[in-house]
């Protein structure tokens, strides 16, 4: 199945992005396709390359990048939400792209399921 994911919260403060990541990884392991992950609200904060967690902690941004690169997931960051919060192309981590909200609606139309993670 084709699965789309919506993430509404940023890293480290809320569990949402951790849950979404573990869900996405499990979906891929089961042979499903995670077609797109859309980052909205504070979720856009998952995409900054300036993120530097302590060494013994999970690197939430980098592991999204890796999962996307390994499995061809389209990581889309909402432009309006991103600009509000200081996320731009110059500080965007690899594997992410900034685009419009239409990408979320499109994910809903194209995917078989859309799962939301937030607060």
């Amino acid at each position: 199945m084709k699965i789309g994911i919506l993430i509404n919260e940023g890293p480290y403060t809320h569990q949402a992005t951790d849950s979404a990541y573990l869900f996405a990884r499990a979906a891929i392991e089961k042979g499903h396709q995670v077609s797109r992950v859309f980052f909205y609200h504070d979720g856009v904060n998952n995409s900054t390359r300036l993120t530097e967690p302590p060494q013994d902690d999970r690197h939430i941004v980098n592991r999204w990048t890796k999962l996307a690169q390994d499995h061809g997931i389209d990581l889309v960051v909402c432009v309006a939400a991103a600009l509000r919060r200081g996320i731009k192309d110059e500080n965007l981590a690899p594997g992410f792209r900034i685009s419009g909200l239409g990408q979320l609606i499109e994910a809903g139309i194209q995917a078989d399921r859309l799962v939301t993670f937030g607060d």
Binding site: Y40, H41, A80, G102, E106
Partner: peptide, 19 residues
């Protein structure tokens, strides 16, 4: 919180998709 405003923004975009 910003959720009300930002979900309204989604709804406006959704209108363009004829869903």
């Amino acid at each position: 919180t910003i959720y009300a405003l930002e979900s309204l923004e989604v709804v406006l975009i959704a209108a363009a998709f004829d869903q």
